[in-house]
Design a binder for these strands. Structure first.
Lengths: 122, 122
DNA sequence: CGGCATCCTTCTGGATACTG
DNA sequence: CAGTATCCAGAAGGATGCCG
């Protein structure tokens, strides 16, 4: 993008971003995907713990939506009591680039807004 | 990330993602940023037109939030009637990578869910 | 043109309790 | 453990009209 405003049409790109957000929007969805992505396999209660502030209701709901969108899969192990693993699908793994960009930016951003040291809540 | 689940702690990364989403979450915020980003400078009514389905109220509100977070700046030209340009700040431009990832993924995603041809609404 | 104010409906999401 | 069910407050967000 140059500084002079030549008027190409970018509606296609903007709509692509909107499409992506259709599936990813929600206060928690991206954090949930990150959790599953970073750990490869992750259980319900672990995600509940990873994602700061989420309630089990919301986690349950958003996991279901992500599953419907074929981004994650649910694997039930017949242990006692039952164990459920969540995992990214092949398709879901295509989000890795986005997750990485967001992670990088988030780490930088935390530094910029200051007073929010990374180590504090660890 | 390997297939065997060695248990490193990724809370730092997951929280970074959450931090990023703090600033970027909302049904429209990322689309708005994309619009401004792709056109470099963009006026209120143009963004209103770029972002499919947004109302002026929401646009106004989210622009204000983005400005508060120092991601965009508002430039008033004293024309008649008044013209307002929105532009990414230096800091805001650091989001470019994220926007690009989302655009790429969105274009791919549109292909995957099918029945939503890119050209239709152009 | 670029908003803000108001009204009103829908959706979000927390707290809590309960189930297999 | 991994959810589901219910209740309910508050936020999100659309429609419309007004203003400098």
């Amino acid at each position: 993008m140059t500084d002079n405003d030549y008027t190409a049409c970018h509606k296609r790109e903007i709509m692509a971003v909107h499409d992506a957000m259709d599936v990813l929007s929600g206060k928690w969805k991206i954090s949930i995907i990150s959790s599953i992505c970073y750990y490869n396999k992750r259980r319900f209660s672990d995600i509940l713990n990873d994602v700061n502030g989420i309630s089990n209701k919301m986690l349950s709901k958003e996991l279901k939506e992500l599953e419907m969108n074929l981004l994650i899969k649910r694997i039930v192990l017949d242990s006692q009591p039952v164990t459920v693993q969540y995992q990214l699908t092949e398709y879901g793994r295509s989000l890795q680039t986005i997750i990485n960009s967001l992670t990088d930016w988030g780490l930088e951003h935390r530094r910029v807004i200051a007073g929010k040291p990374t180590e504090a809540v660890l």
